[in-house]
């Protein structure tokens, strides 16, 4: 087997980022004439496997065990490691989800094989290579791999487009895994939501988002006035929430909401990966930042280098004037 894609369960359905990983596998399999397969692991693996069997893939595998019914990193790592030992894939693909970050490094340690994580692209022009962002997305890096054998690869959100997934029909095969309680060092409780409610930012047409560059809590009204003038919702990057200036339900990014509004205003947001994955699907991005080299400008449709504390109030005034 050349490529094995590992599915993640998102409330009984296949996680969007797993679909993106399948697209990556299909593309690579096509271009290099490789075989691929999809693996569903743990709870609901039969339901996930049935869904995956409708995609273009060599076969669909399931690995189930009662010790995998609630996610735990040791159990998942041990089970997947056993599948890798049996099936010997050259590449194992994942979405770069929080769960993957939690257990896949364990497999890397156990197998002594590289885990290339948060990959943004794969290149097939000169052999196969993977690239990731570095230095907080200000630079990119092609990754070198030291030796032969299985390579674990996780893809950043939206590195591949899940809409491009090819359909097909595949057989399902169960792979036996043997686990015992002694392997599992943690006890996990049921997941819970802390701050339900608030606003559904995914429905907003216009989002005014503030980052560290806002400076202090007292400056927030500047952004709020703009939001009010233009009819948008306020959101932020993580540091603003961490500072307690806005509630966590207003956070955009890997640990917050994922949005794709008509207009996304990034005020004093540098464009760290963790934020960008939550907003890069926006139709129009306008960025104001005093640092001309901020990575947000790579992503913006319109960029303004300058002091937002000076520019935004004047912009708000001008918008109000234009509306009258």
């Amino acid at each position: 087997m050349d490529i094995l894609v590992v599915l993640e369960n998102n409330n009984g359905a296949i996680h969007r980022m797993s679909l993106e990983a399948i697209v990556a596998a299909q593309k690579l399999a096509d271009e290099q004439n490789l075989s691929n397969a999809i693996l569903a692991i743990g709870a609901d693996s039969n339901a996930l496997a049935n869904a995956a069997a409708h995609y273009d893939t060599g076969e669909v595998l399931t690995a189930e065990h009662n010790l995998l019914s609630v996610y735990n990193s040791d159990g998942y790592a041990a089970a997947l490691r056993q599948v890798i030992d049996q099936e010997k894939p050259s590449y194992v693909f994942f979405g770069h989800t929080y769960m993957v970050r939690d257990y896949v490094p364990k497999i890397s340690a156990q197998l002594q094989r590289p885990f290339l994580c948060d990959v943004i692209s794969l290149k097939t022009n000169d052999g196969l290579s993977f690239a990731k962002q570095a230095f907080n997305a200000k630079l990119a890096a092609d990754l070198g791999v030291a030796s032969e054998g299985t390579i674990l690869v996780s893809f950043q959100s939206a590195a591949f487009n899940a809409d491009l997934i090819s359909s097909g029909s595949a057989e399902i095969r169960e792979v036996a895994v043997e686990l015992d309680e002694g392997m599992i060092k943690t006890t996990a409780e049921e997941p819970f939501q802390e701050e339900a409610g608030g606003v559904d930012l995914t429905a907003a047409e216009i989002i005014i988002s503030v980052g560290r560059g806002i400076g202090k809590e007292e400056n927030l009204p500047i952004a709020e006035a703009l939001a009010q003038a233009i009819g948008g919702e306020i959101s932020s990057s993580r540091p603003v929430v961490d500072s307690g200036w806005l509630p966590s339900f207003r956070q955009i990014g890997s640990s917050g909401q994922t949005v794709s509004p008509k207009l996304y205003f990034a005020l004093g947001i540098s464009g760290a990966i963790q934020h960008v994955v939550g907003m890069k699907g926006s139709k129009n991005i306008v960025a104001i930042n005093k640092d001309a080299e901020a990575p947000i400008f790579e992503l913006a449709d319109y960029g303004v280098v300058g002091d937002l504390l000076e520019i935004v109030p004047k912009l708000t005034e001008a918008i109000l004037a234009a509306k009258n």
Binding site: S108, Q112, A134, A141, D142, L143, G144
Partner: peptide
Amino acid sequence: QQSFANIY
């Protein structure tokens, strides 16, 4: 196991 082969 792995390294930055080329940054840009």
